[in-house]
């Protein structure tokens, strides 16, 4: 029993997700294109480096919104899942596969909508049309990014549902966003240590998105010119390993899901 179709449709028609993952991210892109760029001399390679940095970080933020959406959905549906695994044909594996499929599609859709937004805004500001250099690579990393964020979000929220109680759901649900902002912005401005650049899945995704859009590897600091490039192979290995680890963990937790009352999550 596969829910891939309904889940993908529900995600694609989720107006809240579109607002936070696209419209709100469009606002940040506009800040990058029209405000932060004031006073900078951006032409040719420097413009591409600058715009690509914004694209990579913004997609990271956008995917973290997808993670929050998945966490909210699971918090709301813990009873439905606990029931469905017992009394319908839905299995934890098929549910997981459905959400993976939906998240992969959403990862690609969000990433490519933001490519359009980046290209459009920087074209308006600088009169130069920046197109992504390696579309297949962007397709792959966006898909992988969507799946990683889904697995991370599912793991975190299942720990809350199964063991901690919903009181902490709203905080834990935002952890992917907190890490995305902290590590994404950090990589845009400071030289992070190599172990973090390669070991952090958030920076792996940002660096690979950068490479896919720009057509050449990212430096340690996003957009930095004349610096040693990051190696795409360990970056890819990092994100794959993290995704596999979180996939296994979330599947184990999903098999033990508890029904929780939404009232548990009430804060006030």
């Amino acid at each position: 029993m596969n829910l891939w179709g309904p889940y993908t449709k529900a995600m694609l028609t989720n107006r809240t997700l579109w607002f936070w993952a696209v419209v709100f991210m469009g606002f940040w892109l506009a800040i990058g294109a029209f405000v932060e760029s004031q006073g900078l001399s951006l032409v040719g390679a420097s413009l591409r480096n600058y715009a690509t940095s914004w694209y990579a970080v913004i997609v990271l933020f956008s995917l973290s919104m997808l993670a929050i959406s998945i966490a909210n959905s699971m918090t709301y549906g813990s009873g439905a899942l606990a029931y469905s695994f017992r009394f319908t044909r839905l299995t934890p594996e098929s549910y997981f596969g459905s959400v993976v499929g939906g998240s992969a599609v959403l990862g690609i859709v969000l990433s490519f909508v933001l490519i359009g937004a980046t290209t459009a805004m920087f074209a308006i500001r600088f009169g130069s049309v920046l197109l992504p250099a390696d579309v297949p690579a962007l397709l792959g990393i966006s898909l992988l990014g969507g799946v990683f964020y889904m697995a991370l979000s599912m793991t975190l929220i299942l720990v809350v549902i199964n063991y901690l109680g919903l009181k902490s759901a709203s905080f834990i649900g935002f952890v992917p966003l907190l890490f995305s902002y902290a590590l994404g912005i950090a990589q845009a401005y400071v030289r992070l240590p190599d172990w973090l650049l390669y070991g952090s899945p958030f920076n792996d995704i940002a660096s690979l998105l950068y490479q896919g859009f720009a057509g050449y590897p990212s430096a340690a600091v996003l957009g930095e010119a004349n610096a040693a490039p990051l190696d795409w192979a360990p970056l890819t290995a990092g994100i794959v390993v993290w995704t596999l680890l979180l996939t296994g963990t979330s599947l184990l937790l999903l098999r033990r899901i508890r029904a929780r009352q939404l009232e548990e999550g009430r804060q006030i």
Binding site: L3, G79, A80, F87, A259
Partner: peptide, 13 residues
């Protein structure tokens, strides 16, 4: 089967 609303909150469509 049951009529409890909470078990039908699998997906919002």
């Amino acid at each position: 089967s049951t009529n409890l609303a909470e078990v039908y909150r699998l997906v919002s469509l």
